[in-house]
Write a protein that binds this DNA or RNA. Sequence first.
RNA 1: GCCCGGGUGGUGAAAUGGUAGACACAAGGGACUUAAAAUCCCUCGACCGCAAGGUCAUGCGAGUUCGAGUCUCGCCCCGGGCACCA
Length: 977
Amino acid sequence: MKQYNPQEIEKKWQKYWEENLELSEAKNDSDKPKFYCLDMFPYPSGAGLHVGHVENYTATDIYSRFKRMNGFNVLHPMGWDAFGLPAENFAIKQGVHPNESTHKNIKNFIAQIKSLGMSYDWSREIDTSSPEYYKWTQWFFLFLYKNGLAYKKKAKTNWCESCKTVLANEQVVNGNCERCGNQVIQKDLEQWFFKITDFIEDFDGENGRMSGLINGLDEIDWPNSTRVAQKNWIGKSEGAIIKFPISIHSDLRTTNYKLQTNDIEVFTTRVDTIFGCTYVVLAPESALVQELKSQAGNVREIEKYIMDSKKKTDLERMENKEKTGVEMKGIKAINPFNNEEVPVFIADYVIGTYGTGAVMAVPAHDERDFEFAKKYNLEIRQSIAKLFIDQGKNAPVEGKELQKRKTVNVIVKHWKEDKYACLDWNEHGWKSFIIGGINEGETGEEAAIREVKEEAGFQNMTIVRKIGGEIHNCFFAAHKNVNRCAETECYYVELKNDEYVEPKKEDTKNHNLQWVSFDELEGFLNLEGQKWFLNIFKNQEWATTEDGVVINSGEFTGLNSQDAREKMSAWLEKESKGERKINYRLRDWLVSRQRYWGAPIPIIYCDKCGEVPVPEKDLPVMLPTDVDFKPTGESPLAISKSFHDVACPLCGEKARRESDTMDTFVCSSWYYLRFADPKNEKEFAVKENIKKWLPVDLYMGGAEHTVLHLLYARFFTKVLAKYGYVNFDEPFLKLRHQGMILAEDGRKMSKSLGNVVNPDEVVDIFGADSLRLYEMFLGPLEEMKAWNMRSVIGQKNFLTKVWKTFKEKELIDCNGGCEGVPKELPILLHKTIKKVTEDVESFGFNTAISQMMIFINSASKYEKLPKAGMEKFLMLLAPFAPHMAEEIWCGVLGHEKSIFLEVWPKFNEAMTKDEEINLVVQVNGKVRDMIIVSADIVEEEARKVVMESEKISKHIEGKEIKKIIFIKGKLINIVAV
RNA sequence: GCCCGGGUGGUGAAAUGGUAGACACAAGGGACUUAAAAUCCCUCGACCGCAAGGUCAUGCGAGUUCGAGUCUCGCCCCGGGCACCA
């Protein structure tokens, strides 16, 4: 065979690998260190494998092969997420049973994956729709049930009319069904839930303290964006519950004044703003509304509003941002902090299911309340102010002057405590540095100056002005945004012995502010006579939602927001008028589905015994095959009499089975455990094997699963950790997402656009090795990339070059001297080993490939090549292009055993260094010459060499050399003026 | 609106603060060939110049630095996620 013919050699080696299982099998009894490398298992779609799958599986295949060659016992399995709506919808469309179509699709997937030369351990293949698997999915349901973590309740649920089933919150996207895009409506249904909310915070497990869903995220090597997305989804917010007693003025009928015993409880994260509360709002769904409405003077109006907002779908609520509401006339809430009566409204901008379903409205400091208050003409009362430092008469304000001066630093002291800060003014406004601590023998001022110099890096700082000639007593609020404009900072300074200078007022950004000196604010902080200024609204045009300093707030006035929250919460608890409270956005996971193609929920309902779990010995509850599975809204399983009618396991009387199936995400929440022991009939996996293989060391898959699957899987692991089934609390130690591959037109690949690339086609034309290389070379693994069919040829060219180099050049044994072999090749080889090794380790596959290209481009130029070196190169290439490497290794070089049994080559650091380098010579930072010198040239020598250069002397002629910067082995820069 | 990412040639993209554009694709030119394919060689950011060389260039504007694609600040644009969560 002269030509490189991928089709021919690829088939041959795929067969060989299938027959030689030691190349891919994970060994339970090996002494080698383990490595569990997992792909997010696919849903076997009828469309077959797409290029995104190929990207995902190639990356992990390269990594698995790399790890094996580095002496690891690698578990690299594959399975099928076979249950679920898409499979069922596909089957309905094709008019076949989902069981049939799914298995047909799986067969196709296997063939496609094998044609790509992936080294999966097929002996561990799993299929979530097989009874051997879903038996354990049901076991998990019972396990949760027995521990009080699975429960049934009637709840407002998301219903998709097209899929005829309920959906989890996570499966609703913009008010639409994640799968079909149909609008989701709300239905009150009795459904099964998993108590995922029990695992948000850390918990005690049988093997000690375990991390919850929030803290666990800090322990794992996951993309930052994914961790942030999960944190946001959980949505922890710390605040307080405040009890507003209710008073009823039935002034429409009588003058009686009646105080109710029950309170309106509101949840807020901004207790500090409570003195700005001018009304209270209840969600229309709130139970309290039902209780109170009859007392109101406008019952009818209220009922009409409730009806109207009930009719709205979530989508309508979202689309129509205009806020609506209705006052409960005659009903007042009493602010416990100042005993003031405020009106009570019902409005659907308050969410009934979050917090207490009631909020205190502070229009001055909350955008939504502000909007509502403007519309209904309610009082807007400021309770948080921003306070500003006096710029001082010497502080420069004009841009040009600033440029000259750069910065002005003022050191200030906290008005009460022994804390110092530095305020720094430049054209961007004030900056601040909070002084950390005072060293021994140091005054506060000295500490402040030191910190400014060291920490802030202002080595050339001069204190242009200390206000009043001394360090000032000053209040400062710690805050994160250090670099805002002066107007948004929040400092105030007590000025001693100093003139007050009117701040500039022409600031357009803050035209609704009125500058008020401290004198104008009576009683403020009891520091009469001091000169301060702060923002007090003249005409409030927007809500200021940032933290600041509390004003108009009785005894709390003068505190910064943070301290105020602390003190006010403490006050609430002391007075029993409320308490600190943490709320989460995350709700329990709704797992019931009214569909056919899923794992039946193993529960039996008996008239006598009630809800009875199916005994473990009766598992699996088989999915009947004889039902009409087309969705009607009723669970299809309810129609099957043989399934539905059953004897109660407790009393033996007539009973009925739960006819809903489980969300397919339940199946995928534990599959990674099953791979450790896929054939076990007695347990979901035997403990030793779990201990041997888990947690997963590398998990790779699309970013579309950032919240759904990844959150659920973590939850399952945490449940198992709590009850001692596993001794770890995070299932996936390292996670990477492959970026989406777009079509050539830059749009998403989709059938309807007709721009889908079928990997089979690419394999037919270029071969699997070229396809693998192409997808890895396309760009960084995690980034979004567009397909370009014309570029695939580049990889085939590269492989052809490798092929020809091994076939046509003379490979010589270098043991007894290496005549005719270029001496720069070993250096390049070691550089290449280093680069490829490091890049594979960090998933920089694109740059690893380009380094191999550089090597072969160079090597192919020579007629004689060192055999040992070329073999090492082949080992580097092997994980990327396994067929080619195996063919050359065994076919061309005549080795008997597979190249994948070889040990990954090592590089010698000393061998990666060139003897000579191109010294870059710069004059004033511009490259003016390049001189070849010995790599270890020292500064002295380099200076001499450089000065001899004509090009350089031309550039420094007549100039004074100020400085010479020398970077060893790289560069020399002459600074000349 | 908030939270994450991004913005570098015709294209995909490289660059621990140290030669911007490695490596490839496309394009153009050439060699071999009766011809084509295959293969090999050369050119390939823009502008000025016969050349040597020079100037400008990493979304825009500033800053730090001997030196910035890379660090800091502000702004613009694009992609993704969340979205009335108090």
